[in-house]
Structures are given as C-alpha cells and as structure tokens.
Nucleic acid binder design. Sequence first.
DNA 1: GACCAGGCACATC
DNA 2: GATGTGCATGGT
Length: 218
Amino acid sequence: MRSSSDKTVRAAYDRLYEAYGPQDWWPGDTRFEIIVGAILTQNTAWTNVEKAIANLKRERILTPEAMKKAGKKTLASLIRPAGYYNIKTERLKNFIAMLFSGYGGSLASMAKTPTVTLRRELLSVNGIGPETCDSIMLYAFNRPVFVVDAYTKRIFSRHGLFKETADYHYVQKFFSDRVGPDAKVYNEYHALIVRLAKKHCRKKPDCVDCPLGRLELS
DNA sequence: GACCAGGCACATC
DNA sequence: GATGTGCATGGT
C-alpha cells in the first residue's frame, strides 16, 4: 500500500527539480577528486573545501599515487583551509592505504567491486562513515545509494515526515523505499536538497519563497 | 565575537 | 543504546 508520504517524497523532488533544474553533481572532475572532496567536506563548508582542492591540484597531489607519496605534513598544510586538517590527513591516508592494499591503488579496479562489498570496504576505513561512504558510492561509483545528510534530516523532519533524531539507515530506507533504486534520481535529489538547504534551511530557517512550500501529507 | 558548515570516532554513562 | 566532546578553518 502506498502511504501519503510516498507522494510527498516525490512531490518534493518534483518541486525542487522544477525550481532548480539538474545540479550536475558531484562538483569534481575525477573519481579521486570526488572521493577526496567527500572526505574534506565532512562538517565543513564547501567553499573551504574548494580552496583545499585547489591547493592539491596546484601541487599535483590529486591522484592516488601522488597522495600516497606525499608526506603528512605536506598534505595537512595543503588541506588546511578545509579545517580539521590533521584528522582529515589521517582519513585521506587511511583511504589510500585501503585502495592500495585491496585494489593495487586502482580506482578502476575498485569500480568493478559489487555494491555491497564496496560499501563494506569503504565503511571499514577509519574516518569514512555512512554519509561519506554513500557519497562516494553514488557520486564516484554511480551506485544507486541514497545519501542522507544533516540537511535531509532537518528539512524533512521539519515537514513532519520523521523525527530529526531518526538514524541514518532509517532515513535512507525511507527515501529509497519511496523513490526506488535509481542512481540518477538519487544523484539529483541529494544535490537539490543541498541546494535548497543552503538558501532556506539553515539552523535558522528562511522559508520565504521556499520552493518546497508546505508539503501536504494527503 | 558568536554561530555555523554536505561527519566521524571515541569516551562515558 | 543514547549522549557528549574534540577536531579547525573561513564566511555571515
């Protein structure tokens, strides 16, 4: 049986897509850049991540081989603008270590890994949690995995679909069940949520001219 | 100067 | 199993 929230989840997507159009995510040119960006953006404004990525590009460290060779102090100094630079240096190195130990340093090889295995592998890396893992799954490897972030919980809990304290897996399943396994739609939906949130759904909401309006549970 | 940003691991109860 | 804390920069 289709619940009222089924339609709501789709209506929300339609309104966002109509208002903003395709978002052309992830903002990154290569698989590796997407993965690095996913780690660097943890609890951090994207504008700060851009500065860090630009530094890495300038120093030609935005490949697995180059980042493997780079010293931690060098790496930390380059990603400094993204904040938490010491812990993020460790996290990048942890990912690199897994990439080389499990896949010979080849993202193409990693890309051939079945979705369930790949997700388990990513989550086993210290510093890659559910959101970072699923961002990589969806945006670097095009797997149909819905990405849940703080905005997703904030927005849809405000609209009464679930509690803001609902756990990651619950919210992910909530959307997956109502959208169906579609990487293209998941890609746009998450990007549209971020787009919406940056303008309207900060901790102090600005609901004037919000394209979502009032989501009716009917 | 306070508050916030596309989390996560770890400690403690 | 829930809740609290450290990690850090740069924009508003």
